[in-house]
Each structure stands twice: as structure tokens, then as C-alpha cells.
Amino acid sequence: MAFFIFSTTAIAQETGQRDNRTMLAKVQSLDLESVREGVVVHYKPGYKERAEKLGPLLNDAIQFFKKELGITQQFHLALVDSLDWIQISSSPYGLPHVSGMNDEDPPVAVLPVSGEGTVYDFMVSLDNNFSKNLRQRIQNTGYSWEEISGTMVDLVSLHELGHVYKNAYGIGEPALWFNEFMANYFSYLYMFQQRPELAEIWDITGHAIQEGFEPQYHTLEDFEKRYVKVGVGNYAWYQSAFEMKANPLVEKYGLSFVKRMKEVFPNGVGKIASEKVLEELETNYPGFQEWAQVFKRQ
């Protein structure tokens, strides 16, 4: 599971037969080059510069979590174009996702070969709906909104890595939304402590979605039932809402929140009703119930 998921092949879509190969095996069957930057980046020929940009970023995050959590984690990144995308994934082109969570099925994050696709297009479309304060924050970065939107697609790779470390560290999944919330927490934890300029861009994009998009679905029950089927924009809205809570918690509690979540929701905890999850979070970190009102609007 990830920021945008589903990882079946086009063949499976057409024939109804599931492709049981690991995502790594699917990626390795494509005509891609690769470079090892700590992580292994598989990329379409002609995009080595992008591979050499994202590889070290992910490797730096891996080294950060190795130091802080004592976990050594392998990770692959695949940068593919639209034609290769449909050979390994059933999700629309440009919806980043991760598959694989163990040594037998190594985690592989799949991203568009360049800052393009459905997520990028959605982000760019929000440009006319920002407050004066948000526009000032965007201007202060020195980048255009289009450049920030492209960077945001790149940074989703850290969210995917967050899923991997959440599982590897032993935090369970009492609810789908909690799983996504924690992936955001892990990714922002790294950015805030090691790459504050990227943390600012990530936070800006979250606020931009909250300001610029009106969701059709907004309850946690909708998210649990429909998940990514709420649609690209609506799913991004949920993710940005999770970020609005995760980011300030990172800034206040850092790694201690992660350690507490392992105690509260350990691996194997099983599914728990959203209200019960919120009650447990509220007990440990007051403010969750107030935050959750955004999902109860009329």
C-alpha cells in the first residue's frame, strides 16, 4: 500500500489472470538501465540524470532511518514511461506506488520517468485557488508552481519509503487511513530533520490541496471503503489532510511519536474501527479528535 496503489499488470486486466511475479521481477523484465545509488534505480534510457538525483535522496533517507531505528532496508526505484507503466501496473500513469515488503519480494517504488502524469497534472490544475499567504510561501521557495508540482511527485518516493519503514519497524495497520498517515509521518520526519527545504515544499503542497480542492468524499469511512477509488484528486485531498496532522506532530515529537505508535498499534493488531483508533490517539496525543472534524463536514 502506498500513496497511490494497485500493482497488477495490463495482462491481468485483459485476461483476468493475475501476474504472480514480484514487482522487482516485472521491472527487471523491462528494457531499463540501472544505477546503484545505495538504492537501485531502474530507469528508462535517457533519464540517468533523474535516476542520479532521486537515488541519493532515497539513500540518504535510508541511512537516516538506519541510524535512528537500527533497520537496514533494501529498496528499489523504477522510473518508467507510460508504455512500460501499463506492463507492470493497472493504476493510471503517474500515480506513484510501492509493492513488496520483504526479502523475497523486495520493495519497489514506481514513479513516472519524469515529473509528469496524473498527479502532476492535478497539482498544476490547483494554481488559481491559493490564498495570499500560500502564494507568498510558494514565491519564497524561488520555484514556480509547476516546478513545485514536479518536485512533489519526486517526494512521493519518500512517502513510499515511509510505508516500508513503518512495516519494518513493527507498526501495525489498524486502519487504511492510519497506514497512510504514518507513511506521511515517516517521510516528513526525514525531510524536516535532514532536508528542511524539501519539508517546506511538501508542506506547501499539502496546504495547496486543502485550499484548492473540494472533495466529493470526505469521511474516514469513505476512505476505508473506497480507498484510491475515490479518484486522484479526492485521494490527494485525504493525503493532504493526513499531512496537516502529521507535519506538526513531527515538528513537536519527532521520533518519539513513532516509538509510541509501535507500542499502541504493534504489528498484527488487526483492523480497528476509525473512532476507536482516534480515541487511542487522542489519549496519547490530544488534538486528534479536533483534527478529525475535517472528515465530518456536512
Rank of each mutant, 00 (worst) to 15 (best):
D60L: 13
I62G: 04
I62D: 10
F65L: 07
K67Y: 07
L69Q: 06
L69A: 01
G70V: 10
I71E: 11
I71Y: 09
I71N: 03
T72Q: 08
Q73A: 15
Q74C: 08
F75H: 10
H76Y: 14
A78G: 00
L79C: 03
V80H: 11
S82M: 05
D84S: 08
D84G: 14
I88A: 10
S89P: 11
S90L: 05
S91D: 12
P92A: 14
V98D: 03
G100W: 09
G100R: 04
G100V: 12
D105Y: 06
P106H: 06
P107D: 03
A109K: 06
A109L: 01
L111R: 07
L111S: 02
L111A: 10
V113T: 03
E116Y: 02
G117S: 07
T118H: 03
T118D: 06
V119T: 08
Y120M: 12
F122H: 09
S125N: 02
L126I: 11
L126G: 00
D127Q: 13
D127F: 00
N128I: 05
N128E: 05
N129A: 13
N129P: 00
N129Q: 15
S131G: 10
S131F: 02
S131H: 05
S131W: 08
N133G: 04
N140A: 08
T141S: 11
G142F: 07
S144R: 03
E147D: 06
E147G: 09
E147I: 12
I148P: 00
G150P: 01
M152H: 11
D154K: 11
L155T: 01
V156I: 15
H159D: 01
H159F: 01
G162M: 04
K166I: 04
N167P: 08
Y169K: 11
Y169A: 10
I171K: 13
I171E: 07
A175Q: 11
F178L: 10
M182G: 07
A183D: 01
S187N: 03
Y188W: 04
Y190L: 12
Y190C: 02
M191F: 12
F192R: 14
Q193G: 01
Q193M: 09
